[in-house]
Computed example of a mutant assay.
Amino acid sequence: MNKIMFVGALVLACVVMGQALQCYKCNLGLFGFCSKSKINCTGASDKCYNADGKTGSLLVVQEKGCVPLASCNTTDSNVAFQQVIYSMTKVCCEGELCNSGATTSVSVLAGIGMVTVWLTSLL
């Protein structure tokens, strides 16, 4: 009887440990709008994150997804999007789908200003 319980507990532990962490994924969000879907994290990507990309004090882009622990709470200050250089800060969280919340919001007026600057740079 003890052997059966031990084997059952071992199998249950393997099943629980084998389940992947689920996070929300958003490859590119602009001006506070980030369309997201659910993904299973694989390999060393064991944390969910929200990321904000800023140029100066203006929020430009957002991301969500899975990253390794070493990439948590880091800032890459040399990222380019549409010929604008910005810094991307990844902030990790704990638990299933913990990155569901909105990233830092930006005012509509600031968003319109950024789009105007970007459009005029294309002309």
Rank of each mutant, 00 (worst) to 15 (best):
V67R: 04
G95A: 12
A44F: 07
V108R: 06
M17V: 08
K90S: 04
F33S: 15
C93G: 14
S45T: 08
K36V: 01
T75M: 06
C72E: 00
L97C: 04
C26E: 01
K38Q: 09
G111C: 04
G53T: 10
L12T: 09
C66N: 02
A70Q: 09
C41E: 06
V16P: 00
F6R: 06
C98N: 12
L122R: 05
L12I: 08
A110L: 14
S87C: 06
M88F: 05
S45R: 10
A13G: 09
S35L: 12
A44Q: 13
V16I: 15
S35T: 06
T89E: 00
S77A: 11
L30A: 11
Q22S: 09
L12Y: 11
G8S: 15
W118K: 10
T104W: 02
V91D: 00
Y49M: 10
V67P: 01
C41K: 06
V15N: 00
A13Y: 09
G43W: 02
G18N: 10
A110N: 14
C93E: 13
Q62R: 01
A44K: 13
I112T: 05
V115R: 10
T74N: 06
A9G: 14
N40R: 12
E94G: 07
S121I: 06
S45W: 04
C92Y: 01
Y24T: 02
F6H: 05
V91P: 02
G32K: 06
N40Q: 12
C23I: 01
N27Q: 10
Q62Y: 02
T75Q: 01
G95Q: 05
L21F: 08
T116V: 15
V117A: 15
N27A: 05
V115G: 11
S107E: 10
L109I: 11
V106G: 07
N40M: 11
V106Q: 11
V7A: 15
S45P: 00
G32D: 06
C41F: 05
M5K: 07
F6S: 09
G101D: 14
G113A: 14
G29P: 06
A80V: 11
Y24G: 02
V79T: 12
S45Q: 13
D46M: 11
Q83K: 12
S87A: 15
V67H: 01
T74H: 04
V117H: 12
F31H: 13
S45F: 08
K25N: 01
Q62S: 05
A9V: 07
G53I: 09
G18W: 14
L97M: 03
C98P: 13
D76V: 13
C92L: 01
A20E: 05
A70T: 08
L21E: 06
G95E: 07
C72F: 03
G32S: 10
K38S: 03
C93A: 13
M88A: 07
L122F: 08
N27D: 12
Q22K: 09
T116N: 15
L59T: 09
D52V: 14
L10T: 11
C14E: 04
M114L: 15
G32M: 00
N73Y: 13
N40F: 12
